[in-house]
């Protein structure tokens, strides 16, 4: 019993982290239709930025969020303008190749500049945890979990009550109609991509107290994020949140019940089954047509 509670808690908390990372990816896909294979590298950049601010200016990671997130927003904007916009109506294969190329460039540029060393930010709260109801709660992960909920709520409000938010929703639903209604599609794409990058920026900052950063860290989270995005329905933010939690729990249980090494196999198989049986994902809309 004690095990069950602990495994569920660990799984859910990890799921919160996954959800945060997946949210940016799904937002970008939902609006622009682009699967960003460099998403993991954006996470890496955010983590390095957090580390740098801590190392040079001594900023606490949680405070550096006010610098890192806008920075990621700007980086996302620039990348979108330079290389996503020209291929926005290109075939999927081209888009995938472009972002895969970007991923190679970013990971190896980081290797060139930062070397392969792993770096961490030491904080007083990094290893703290809380005993509650028979289970341990890791504090930074709880913060991440809460942040994921806040982020989802903020997006809900943003989509519902602001012009830009509604324009994004409209574009995601029907690009042509939105265009006819006078929405500047180009700007919306840029905004969505930048928001998605900012989102992964939040994730990068919040996991810095518990993880190490090194140039290939992106690949550690990237595949999981893809699975979650598909699970929740591509382009569905709330789906990404639920999908994240689900994968976190599935991972924890399959690691415990089957073997730690097969937990990926379990969720990949679930992933393939869901794709085949219900390609639109658990909460998905109908498949986006390009």
């Amino acid at each position: 019993m004690e095990n069950i509670i602990q495994i569920t808690v660990s799984g859910l908390l990890m799921g919160g982290i996954y959800a945060m990372i997946a949210m940016g990816l799904t937002l970008i896909f939902g609006v622009t239709g682009i699967v960003n294979f460099a998403h993991g590298e954006f996470l890496m950049v955010a983590m390095f930025a957090t580390w740098g601010l801590n190392n040079v200016l001594g900023l606490d990671p949680y405070i550096s969020i006010i610098i890192v997130v806008p920075l990621m927003f700007i980086i996302g904007m620039l990348v979108e303008k330079a290389m996503i916009q020209p291929i926005i109506s290109a075939p999927h294969s081209m888009q995938i190749m472009a972002t895969a190329g970007l991923s190679t460039v970013m990971a190896n540029a980081a290797l060139m500049i930062m070397q392969a060393d792993y770096r961490s930010v030491v904080t007083s709260y990094g290893t703290k945890s809380l005993m509650l109801g028979g289970a341990m709660f890791n504090i930074p992960k709880v913060v991440g979990f809460v942040a994921a909920i806040i982020l989802t709520s903020l997006f809900y409000l943003f989509f519902k009550y602001t012009y830009s938010g509604r324009a994004i929703t409209a574009t995601a639903q029907n690009m042509k109609a939105a265009k006819l209604m006078g929405v500047n599609i180009k700007n919306i794409y840029t905004l969505a991509f930048a928001l998605g990058s900012a989102c992964v920026g939040v994730a990068g900052v919040l996991i810095m107290p518990i993880y190490y950063v090194f140039p290939s860290i992106g690949t550690y989270f990237c595949t999981t994020a893809f699975v979650i995005v598909v699970l929740g329905g591509m382009g569905n933010l709330y789906g990404a949140f639920l999908g994240g939690l689900l994968i976190g729990v599935v991972e924890a249980y399959s690691g415990f019940l089957i073997a730690p090494v097969f937990k990926e196999v379990v969720y990949f198989i679930i992933f393939i089954i869901i794709l085949v049986v219900r390609p639109s994902g658990l909460l998905g809309k109908t498949t986006r047509s390009s």
Binding site: F29, V35, H92, I96, T223, F226, V227, V230, M234, A259, V261, F262, E264, V265, F268, I269, F271, I272, L275, V276, P279, T287, S290
Partner: peptide, 27 residues
């Protein structure tokens, strides 16, 4: 199983499949 999927969905499914094969071969 997978070829009725479209675009990025197919791509992701095939990536996942190959990963499963790798993990099985390693373990």
């Amino acid at each position: 199983a997978c070829l009725r999927l479209k675009g990025a969905y197919l791509t992701l499914a095939t990536i996942a499949f190959a990963e499963v094969m790798r993990i099985l071969a390693a373990n």
